[in-house]
Simulated assay, not measured.
Amino acid sequence: MKTNSLPAWILAVRPYSLGNSVILILVGSALAWTDGAFHWLPALLCLLFAVLMQCTANLVNDLWDFMKGADKPDRLGPDRAFAKGYITLRAMKAGIAGFTLAACAAGTGILAWALHADILRYGGWELVAVGAACVVFAYFYTAGPWPLAYHGMGDIAVILFFGLIPVGFTYYILTGTWTWEVSVAALACGLVINTMLMVNNFRDREEDARCNKRTVVVCLGAGVGRWGYFALGAAAVALCLTLLAGGRPWAALLPLAYLAAHTATWRKMVRIDHGEELNVCLGETARNILLFGALFTVGILLG
């Protein structure tokens, strides 16, 4: 692959994972739609911000996992552009800065729209704080003197920044409010998306232990990875079922189909147990996350 080429950058931003950001904004937007408060422009800006921030986080992860010794050219998981030498250090740093600035521009657009609509409770400072937190998370998930992913905090960070914040604040930006149903939906999404991190950490547990990357699986053992993966998906579906109390039967019941696919992948993961073959489970997990997002969004729209 040619150095710093478009295919190299496509590999670096990990397009297979970007669907995670898409479903989060779709779920938040669907909730706003059913509550009669959907607006296409801020929803589109939220989507742009989420995708750009995920690209930033993926690039930072690509760079710093290699620099910390967690990613080597012969790693078990999918190829990493920087580790393979497909992107130079100078270009990677410029790319990280560019994606960060683009995300901040989208965030500024969100803030401008929300201020014009006059629906914010705290004058926009809450959006500034959340936007800044997203940037900090994108960098300090794997970079800095105390990276979250290296100290057993990766799962909490994913549930927060790939669940509660994007779903909740998409709804808040569109409606100016926050409900218990939004919290349930956001947490369910965060748990489902964390299955991707869990299967990654389960596959890489031996490599991570050697480079002192203290993930939950490294700290608590492979058994936590096996059962934790299943528990995340099951807990998400259980949370969806609570929406029956809010008069949303479709949103509560359609995700049950996801649980069947999730369980099948979990059984395969347990059977394979270790090695590069677990990448099959990673691909299925990405597919299952998209399935959950589609079912949940349609269920919300149906009521």
Rank of each mutant, 00 (worst) to 15 (best):
N200L: 05
W180T: 11
D71K: 07
D118P: 00
N4D: 15
L26P: 00
M92K: 04
T263E: 07
G107I: 06
V224C: 10
W9A: 02
I25L: 08
H262N: 05
M153G: 13
A112P: 01
C104A: 15
F292K: 10
I96C: 03
L115Q: 10
P166D: 13
L256K: 04
G223M: 12
A70Q: 03
A209P: 01
T100Q: 11
V280K: 11
W178A: 15
L232E: 04
N4E: 06
T142K: 05
A91P: 00
D65Q: 02
D62C: 02
Y16N: 13
I289C: 03
L291T: 01
L111S: 09
G131S: 08
L160G: 09
P166S: 14
A30D: 02
G152M: 11
M92Q: 03
H39N: 11
F202W: 15
I165T: 09
A222V: 11
A103F: 04
I87C: 00
V218Q: 05
L243W: 03
L52P: 01
G98I: 08
R287H: 12
V237K: 09
G246I: 04
G176A: 14
G107A: 11
M198K: 10
A132Q: 08
Y258A: 05
A143W: 08
G154T: 09
V22Q: 07
K268V: 10
V182A: 07
W180A: 14
R267A: 12
V136E: 01
G28A: 10
R75W: 03
S29A: 13
V224F: 14
C104I: 15
H151C: 07
V216N: 12
L24H: 10
A149T: 04
A260L: 14
R80E: 00
L59Q: 06
F140I: 08
N58W: 00
A132S: 11
